[in-house]
Design a binder for these strands. Structure first.
Lengths: 209, 209, 209, 209
DNA sequence: AATGAATGAGAATTCATTCAT
DNA sequence: TATGAATGAATTCTCATTCAT
């Protein structure tokens, strides 16, 4: 494996790439611009990554790693389910604001037709979070905390959908406009939005006390 | 003016275009391929539509029209809120299966930076459904059927997010794989999925009787 | 020969064509625009003229005819050579202002690579004026009015060059700007310009009294 | 920055471009053909020049530079006005034969509607020669060598017109044929033509001794 | 090993010309 | 016969990828 480029440089390249892909989308992103913004030559880019697809996959992997790292945190610690939902909602919004490009990269792969590599990566990460949520919901079920009749699979699907839309709503331009449209004055009031979502998710998922 | 292309041909062209855009995204879609798949020459495409952007907008408008026509049906008739949620969920799934490209076209505009025209179109439709849902939720609120403390804006945002993810889940390749991943055996059981979602949405939105 | 189109219509078509070619040049002129401006369909245009080249030739012929008709007038009447030069100069300027497109059409063929037909036409007309001028100069020579040592061929070449540049200067955008650049305040004073040119041509061509 | 294309190659590209533009005119000239004739790929052409307009401007600039360089020579040295006219006539013919495309390029911009850049370039050069000639004529005037009553502006306009037509006559296909038509046997006798033009310009411009 | 100039396939778009109605 | 919609070759320009230096 080549190792002339320092670890930091490699990270920078991926960051620059992620930013470009997140901002312009795969097709409109330019390899030349990426190289130039990262302070390297296109030649180097192609030394490390076989082609644009492969480079995109690398950027995606980088982004998804940040996302899945966060995931583990989500379910750590010993708190009540109600508290957990609130924590996750807050964390999702916070993460959105801190790593806009990660969410945008994620959104980017949901459209377009990507390479096998990108598909696999995304599926792998998706698999992790799916399992994490399902395990959590299963645990809730076993603790008799999940609503009667709700099966863990449906609950985790539902919950992740809500989170995902929330994150798109904070990062992807189109969804952000949509958020403004729906929420009106609530658009700027994250606290109240979380409170509202909390109540709804609580009512949706948890057994009435 | 002579209209050589029959009404059906014009519709076919929009359908072929929508399919191409839905499958490959705006950038990867090729005007030449679209023309060839529609059995016409590129010249005709450019006779009817000034450029790729304008053609995309036309395809989008066509798709969104189908979508907004459906929207009105959603809220027609006099049924209980619980029945209404179920009706909408079923209709959303049914629509998804019948008009996959419509949903994909909608998804397509959430990524990328589109022309003013496309943006306007989408915003217009979004505005209609936002208002429709908010009005409905406001009506529920006034009838004291909405959950205590939930405000109509948040409720409609939440509800529409759930519907949108549901529709993406049935049409956009990536979300479809994700659905399989989460739901497992429930993937093929629409009936049960609706029942589960129903229960969750009911718990999320409606006042306990 | 087809004869559905009235004589006037045919003339109108050629005029519209000449205007279009004169304004935009051969390549940028559009057959569709010409047809539409003439109030006919492209089909008719192609019924009467095999292709764009042939239609251009027809327009050119039409223009050149106007030019050569004028030519004959130039040399009619019985006046002194000095008066004749002045008459021609004035006529050239007057003609320029009245038939800008004729001059522009003429200029148009001097550039570009035109069809055999167009070439022939132009050469034929050119031949007529060349002969006319040479004959006139020969007559002057024989009357011992032409400057000593000047041969009629050179004199007519010189004289026609001057006239041509004068006409371009009044019609072709580029040469018009150039005229302004050179002449400054004389740009708007045709009378004085003629007087000046007169003196120079007189000195150039005619024997000192 | 690495300059892969050698200085000679760059010059060759401009020459090939000038030839193509000179022969076919701006519209009919093809960037692909130019690239291929210059032995490079289209990509290179677009690497060095933003678009066809810009490339045309570069070719034009190159040509005009040669032209304006020559201009300075025209008026250098201390000779009598009569000798100067003769020198300039000879130089103009010589230049025409040596740099046919330069004159053709110049002629090309007199037709068509060119980019701002091309227009500026041409106007700049035109301005230089206009000033040069006017200054010279003004000097003649002050030295009481210019014909009585002739103003320098008209004289320089007249003189430059004659030179321009002379140069077109040697280079632009159409004008060349015309020259043959007018001059007949004098077509091949540059020496005699110069002598004839000399006499006429002398008579037109200079005070009788 | 790094560079970035060069390549050239491919995309959007135009428009002279044809031909079904 | 007239129409103008349809055709499709040709043009400009882009950009991922290659490879000589």
């Amino acid at each position: 494996m080549l190792q002339k480029l320092s670890e930091e440089k490699l990270i920078e390249i991926l960051e620059v790439g992620s930013r470009e892909f997140a901002e312009k989308g795969f097709d409109k992103a330019s390899m030349k611009t990426i190289a130039s913004n990262a302070g390297i030559s296109v030649g180097v880019l192609y030394k490390y990554y076989a082609n644009k697809d492969a480079f995109f996959s690398a950027c995606l992997e980088d982004s998804l790693k940040v996302l899945s790292d966060k995931m583990e945190e989500f379910l750590a610690g010993n708190v009540t389910p109600r508290q957990r939902i609130e924590l996750i909602l807050c964390a999702a919004i916070e993460f959105s604001k801190k790593h806009p490009n990660v969410i945008r990269m994620y959104h980017e792969i949901t459209s377009g037709s990507f390479s096998e590599k990108a598909r696999e990566l995304a599926t792998r990460i998706e698999g992790i979070s799916a399992k994490t949520y399902r395990d959590y919901m299963t645990a809730l079920k076993e603790a008799n905390l999940l609503k009667e009749d709700i099966i863990p699979e449906a609950a985790s699907f539902f919950f992740d959908n809500c989170l995902m839309m929330l994150q798109f709503s904070y990062n992807v331009e189109y969804f952000d406009e949509r958020r403004k449209l729906y929420l009106g004055k609530l658009y700027d009031d994250d606290k109240e939005l979380v409170r509202q979502l909390m109540m709804m998710l609580d009512g949706a998922l948890l057994r009435r006390d």
